[in-house]
Simulated scan of single mutants.
Amino acid sequence: MKISASRVRWSLVGLAFGVTTVIGLAPMVSATNASDSAVVAAEADLPALKLFNQVSLGDGFVQTLYATDASNRPKVLAVRIDAAAVNTLPTTPTHDGQTCFDKDGDGINLETDCASGHERNLWFPKLPGLPFKWLMFNWQRNGHGPTHVFDKPHFDFHFFIQDFTERNKIRTGPCNLVINCDDEATAMKPVPAQFMPAGWGMPGAAGRMGNHIVNPNAAPANGDPFTQAFAYGVYDGHVTYWEPVVNKDWVVATKPTKVCQPITQAPEVELSGYYPTQMCTRYNSAGDVTFTMENFVQRTTPSGS
């Protein structure tokens, strides 16, 4: 297989928030699973966080962490990018080759035939009532579509409800953002109204991921500055992941001690459990970036759904 990163063209259409596949070049990463006794320092306003999973990124790492109450119910889910990783984020090539499709039949070009930026997959603990199973983290050096919305360097945090193996069945192909055209049609199926916030739209399907739904009246889709944003991921008419998106340059430039925003909730959920109602971004004195899902509430699936 010919791999070239020298030809640069960015013509992928639609909205995308980072995708993954087994086609192309897999990055060299190390993974660590931590025991429940691995407690790490947290920002002063957070409870003590337990380290669960860690993978390498640049000269540093990305971690998944969590905190629970006395009954082992989720209080905080966190993703931390340490200062060493923030300062050495991969820049060349744009994509690491995990989501690719040879559109022109001339071999894979990591700049034009791929998506997802630099991707890492991590896991969450199996807490009672926690719907999120794993995390797909993406560093997007050049951002992605749509233009003037998410086309800035940023981090994507995909909190997946969908099983990892089921996600992997969403194939790459020539449609939209490197997605199989039949799978794109499946991804674009509407979600029943009770399971999606009213008025959300701007769909765009991605290989090894599915469709994305955002609030067109919220930043940055409405033209306001891109700091942090939120999307719901959907496939085959179901919500499959929750996705915060954070502007890397904003974090590094402003060094927010704590910036939070509420997560718009759908009227109902398909799966009973504990769901976060707030997301926050923090930059600590060591230069680490910590993203959190907080203020979990119990929600119950409506009878007969």
Rank of each mutant, 00 (worst) to 15 (best):
L46W: 11
L46T: 12
P47G: 11
P47D: 13
K50L: 00
K50H: 14
K50F: 02
F52P: 00
F52L: 04
F52V: 11
F52R: 08
N53C: 05
Q54K: 14
L57G: 00
L57E: 07
L57A: 02
G58M: 00
G60N: 06
F61C: 04
F61T: 13
F61D: 05
V62L: 02
T64G: 04
T64C: 02
L65G: 03
A67Y: 12
A67K: 06
A67G: 11
T68Y: 08
T68N: 09
A70M: 03
S71G: 01
N72E: 13
K75I: 15
K75S: 13
V76F: 14
V76W: 14
A78T: 13
V79W: 04
V79F: 11
V79H: 05
V79N: 01
I81N: 06
D82I: 12
A83G: 11
A83L: 06
A84C: 06
A84Q: 15
A85N: 12
A85H: 11
A85C: 11
P90A: 07
T92G: 01
T92Q: 14
T92I: 15
P93S: 08
P93F: 10
P93D: 12
T94W: 10
T94A: 12
T94G: 04
H95E: 10
H95L: 01
H95V: 08
H95D: 12
H95N: 14
H95F: 15
D96H: 06
G97K: 02
Q98R: 13
T99A: 11
C100P: 09
C100V: 12
F101T: 05
F101C: 00
K103P: 00
G105Y: 05
D106V: 03
D106G: 05
G107D: 11
I108T: 15
I108D: 12
I108H: 04
L110C: 08
E111V: 08
T112Q: 10
D113Y: 06
D113N: 09
C114P: 01
C114D: 06
A115E: 14
S116F: 07
S116I: 02
G117V: 09
G117L: 08
E119L: 09
E119M: 11
R120M: 04
F124T: 06
K126F: 04
L127E: 10
P128T: 06
G129V: 05
G129H: 05
L130I: 11
L130C: 03
F132G: 03
F132T: 10
K133M: 05
K133P: 02
W134L: 01
L135P: 00
L135T: 09
M136K: 01
F137R: 00
F137Q: 01
F137I: 05
N138A: 15
N138M: 01
W139H: 13
Q140S: 04
Q140H: 05
R141F: 07
G143Y: 05
G143S: 04
G143C: 02
G143Q: 02
G145M: 01
P146M: 07
P146T: 10
P146F: 08
T147C: 03
H148C: 02
H148A: 11
V149M: 06
V149K: 09
V149E: 14
F150V: 13
F150A: 09
F150E: 07
D151A: 07
P153Y: 11
F155P: 00
D156A: 12
D156V: 08
D156N: 15
F157K: 00
F157S: 03
